[in-house]
């Protein structure tokens, strides 16, 4: 398959993925806006006013970047895990497997589909946030790169979950028992400086901390982690997860007997 044909195949797959989640926007985009609005209202407005400033910012401003990131993380992950698993369940993944598309185009197509949903939700959540607070971007480049890397990373992670999943239950175990705790403990609602030393060390093992702080640096200009460390961790994880997804698909795990 020539590079041009591969590009056409990739575009086809990405467009199909985007059509899929936009067709069911009430399930895929709207809930994130509602959830974030509630967080802003309860944590930001009602409780945040009693907490005071964190790192020199009002609490509602401090949590805004993390909440946007939470929307990106959960939705990019959810997109690939549900889309890939349902294509396995209904067996229309075979449409791709019998085609001349190389495996890396299939992986890339699903990941990009997740990235688009993550970013769309990110924009929707940002617009929702603007009803509650005034966001001023410190560095647009850092915001964009962090959002892209995070969405890609969690899309790849969701894809791996989708490859291994043997039932619909398997698609919700990781988001419930791994992703949600990591997200909530990933510095969205607090600065790690507020934690005892031991828990600061534990927090640094949580990859989501690097993403939230990278994004917070882009928006507010403050972070618990250096930008170089944050980008290194994100890029390393993204490459690792992409290669793992590619390896699994090449081996036929979950899709070929």
């Amino acid at each position: 398959m020539s590079p041009l044909h591969q590009l056409i195949a990739l575009r086809t797959l990405v467009e199909k993925e985007v059509r899929r989640f936009t067709r069911i926007w009430a399930q895929t985009i709207l809930p994130a806006a509602v959830t974030v609005a509630l967080y802003f209202l309860i944590l930001g407005k009602f409780i945040g006013s009693r907490i005071g400033d964190v790192d020199g910012y009002a609490y509602i401003d401090f949590i805004a970047p993390g909440l946007i990131m939470m929307g990106i993380i959960t939705n990019s992950y959810a997109n690939t895990v549900s889309s890939f698993y349902s294509s396995k369940f209904q067996r229309h993944i075979e449409e791709m497997l019998v085609s001349p598309m190389p495996n890396y185009i299939i992986v890339l197509g699903f990941v990009l589909g997740g990235v688009v949903r993550g970013l769309v939700v990110g924009v929707v959540v940002t617009l929702t946030a603007m009803f509650f607070t005034q966001l001023q971007v410190h560095s647009l480049a850092v915001v964009i790169v962090t959002a892209l890397l995070t969405a890609a990373l969690f899309s790849a992670a969701g894809l791996i979950n989708g490859i291994y999943a043997k039932s619909f239950d398997d698609t919700s175990i990781v988001p419930t028992f791994v992703l949600a705790p990591l997200t909530y403990l990933g510095g969205i609602f607090f600065s790690i400086d507020m934690l005892p030393e031991f828990w600061q060390m534990v927090s640094k093992a949580n990859p989501i901390l690097y993403m939230v702080n990278g994004f917070r640096l882009g928006v507010l200009g403050v972070s618990d982690i250096s930008l170089v460390t944050a980008f290194t961790v994100m890029s390393g994880l993204l490459i690792g997860l992409f290669l793992l997804a590619l390896y699994l698909l090449r081996k036929g795990v979950g899709v070929r007997s």
Binding site: L13, K16, H92, E95
Partner: peptide, 18 residues
């Protein structure tokens, strides 16, 4: 894909073949 119009199913299949 049970939820996709059949014209889309066929068009996508062509796309997968470049």
């Amino acid at each position: 894909n049970k939820f996709e119009p059949i014209i889309e199913i066929l068009t996508n299949q062509g796309g997968y073949f470049g």
